[in-house]
Write a protein that binds this DNA or RNA. Structure first.
Lengths: 165, 165
DNA sequence: ATTGCTGCAAACGATTTGCATGAGG
DNA sequence: CCTCATGCAAATCGTTTGCAGCAAT
């Protein structure tokens, strides 16, 4: 799936990887789980991308580093990463769970093209303010929100006018 | 699943049902499909609620009117309703597709409790403005958006403080 | 008559689970 | 050592599809 980049954040630094690993390790200790090579490998692969990965895609990436790591472990680890705040699920409307990293990321949102599936990220602090405000109004302790816009991107519109239905 | 109502719209009138049925029938004619008793029954059941129905829940409701109507038909009809704008899918984060009616509804959004699954609806015109604005900025022809807030509702917080983890 | 519709059962794809084996604390 | 992690295969969940008979146009 394509991915247009609006912001150009540099690829993740050694420091950040270490810090994220620490977060994971602390989380594991806290809930009485074990630190394993597989979990670290998966975390590292995950951090090395900026895409909205499906479990399948991440599994493929992980396999390049260690072909013995199975599907199931990737699923389970992704859940762990979500638990400790390193990853979060983004539901595009294609029936597949996708994850992105949440570590050191400004709150951002997605606009998805319903024809080609490409997406842009955008930032909109107003939305976080809204979250606060609505939460207060209805007495919810809010934790997060999702905001997605669906539409048709410029390229697809061009294609459509060239080859009309 | 629970459903707290913030706005109190009266239950749907005969008029509205008729109008919605017309919309469906016109849509069917337009795309060369047929008008059937099942489709009308399903539409009527759908309109009679204000909840965010899963296909399963709608199927159960429909069966009270006509026990012979099957699962598959409900799925297929719900898709038709979505096509002609009478229904729209709302993705809470529980892995089930839910639908709500869209006919004669102001643009609204959901706040979902991650503990008990109950939800409130709220209205926020700012969000639609944002959709326009972001779409213009990145040259997308936007069609719709989703905005959901997740958090813990007052009741669940009370329960938690009574019976701490 | 022709074409689409229905309900069933089987297929499907994504995710989860049971289990025997292997590795971390 | 004891407990949890792993990988595999099988199970499960929601959803979709193929098909034979039925109904709307």
């Amino acid at each position: 799936m394509l991915q247009k980049r609006i912001d150009d954040q540099p690829s993740i630094s050694r420091e950040m990887v270490r810090e994220a690993q620490d977060i994971l390790h602390r989380h594991l200790k806290r809930v009485g789980l074990k630190q394993t090579a597989q979990r670290d490998t998966i975390l590292r692969s995950f951090l090395e991308t900026r895409d909205h990965l499906s479990t399948d895609e991440l599994h493929r990436l992980v396999q390049k580093k260690d072909a013995s790591i199975g599907y199931t472990t990737v699923y389970r680890t992704l859940k762990l990463l979500a638990e400790c705040g390193l990853a979060s699920e983004v539901a595009f409307h294609d029936g597949i769970a996708r994850y992105e990293h949440q570590y050191n990321r400004r709150s951002h949102h997605h606009m998805v093209c319903t024809e080609c599936g490409s997406s842009v990220e955008f930032f909109s602090p107003e939305v976080s303010q809204l979250e606060q405000e609505i939460g207060r109004r209805y007495h919810y302790a809010t934790t997060r929100h999702t905001f997605q816009i669906y539409g048709v991107c410029e390229d697809c519109r061009k294609k459509n006018s060239t080859r009309p239905a």
